[in-house]
Amino acid sequence: MELSEEEKQARALRAVRPRHDDPEIPEGVTARDLDKGARNELKTLSKENAEGVAQHLAMAARLIESDPELAHRHAISAARRAGRIGIVRETLAITAYATGDYALAIRELRTYRRISGSNEQLALMVDSERGVGRPDRALEVGRSVQRSELSSATQVAVAIAMSGARLDLGQTEAALDELDIPQLNPDVAYSYSADLFSAYADVLEDLGRVDEAESWRERATRADAALGGDDGDLVEVYEEDIVFDSVDDVISDAAQRAPEEQRAPEEENGSEPVRPSDS
């Protein structure tokens, strides 16, 4: 009986990859535990394969913070079954980054961008280049896409990553300049504001501008609290669209570790601002 294209691909992948034992899927985990958008990307797979891939992706998303190594194993299992699905490659890249395998992260991010056409993971790519010790290359990658083509949250993430690359090169003033972007507005807070304010404070401190650094650090604390931090004694929070990195997919072979270059960020929507409390 002639094999389907999907089965041929799976056999070919198994032939070139070293042995990999699939991590266990806990009882009760189903495809419905995966984000709906991610599930939609799996519709080209057979029903049975889509269910298995979705379960591994859901586990990768669940474990990425607490156990990145196990999350990565789930991502590899998903990749072995659905190597041509964008969300799977993206998840593999994210879990590779979380485990410190920056070369694999770069390769998978590059593949994900080619499949999806999205640049919304550009910041992760810049940071991965830093991870393999190439800050100059990181800056080139960050400049390779027009910032105006990116969502606001991704623009902020790229600015922070670019600032880090400048610090790697000992260019502290330039690191501060990288963070001087329109989103550096002390009067309103979005989902990305606390991280941006904190990064700005850190560079100011490196420059010896301690009082300014402390002022921005306080703004970061207020922004974080206003957006769901610890204390409730702050300010009314308006509707906000928090953007999360898509960690609901996994793919490809983690065995190959060719340091490839580039990949990009993912899509995000605009968000309503929150005005941090002044008290």
Results as ranks from 00 to 15, higher is better:
residue 118 S to F: 07
residue 170 G to K: 05
residue 278 D to H: 00
residue 147 R to K: 07
residue 82 A to K: 02
residue 240 E to V: 14
residue 95 T to H: 05
residue 71 A to E: 01
residue 164 G to P: 05
residue 215 S to I: 04
residue 107 R to Y: 12
residue 268 E to Q: 08
residue 152 S to L: 05
residue 76 I to W: 08
residue 37 G to Y: 06
residue 53 V to E: 01
residue 56 H to F: 11
residue 109 L to H: 03
residue 228 G to W: 05
residue 99 T to A: 03
residue 65 E to S: 05
residue 6 E to G: 08
residue 39 R to M: 15
residue 17 R to V: 14
residue 159 A to G: 07
residue 155 Q to I: 06
residue 1 M to S: 15
residue 134 R to M: 05
residue 69 E to F: 12
residue 259 P to D: 09
residue 27 E to F: 14
residue 133 G to D: 02
residue 3 L to S: 09
residue 239 E to H: 12
residue 165 A to C: 07
residue 86 G to S: 13
residue 146 Q to D: 15
residue 195 D to C: 01
residue 68 P to R: 02
residue 231 D to V: 13
residue 164 G to V: 00
residue 143 R to W: 11
residue 137 R to Q: 14
residue 274 V to K: 01
residue 253 D to S: 11
residue 128 S to G: 06
residue 145 V to D: 03
residue 172 T to L: 00
residue 181 I to R: 04
residue 72 H to S: 10
residue 24 E to W: 04
residue 249 D to S: 07
residue 166 R to Q: 14
residue 56 H to V: 08
residue 173 E to R: 14
residue 162 M to D: 11
residue 54 A to N: 07
residue 219 R to E: 05
residue 62 R to F: 10
residue 173 E to P: 01
residue 134 R to Y: 04
residue 114 R to E: 15
residue 92 L to R: 11
residue 208 G to C: 09
residue 81 R to N: 02
residue 25 I to Y: 01
residue 139 L to G: 12
residue 216 W to Y: 11
residue 229 G to T: 11
residue 113 R to W: 00
residue 205 E to L: 03
residue 120 E to H: 08
residue 63 L to Q: 03
residue 201 A to T: 09
residue 91 T to F: 10
residue 18 P to G: 15
residue 239 E to K: 13
residue 248 D to Y: 13
residue 215 S to Y: 00
residue 221 T to S: 06
residue 213 A to Y: 06
residue 70 L to F: 07
residue 57 L to K: 00
residue 41 E to C: 13
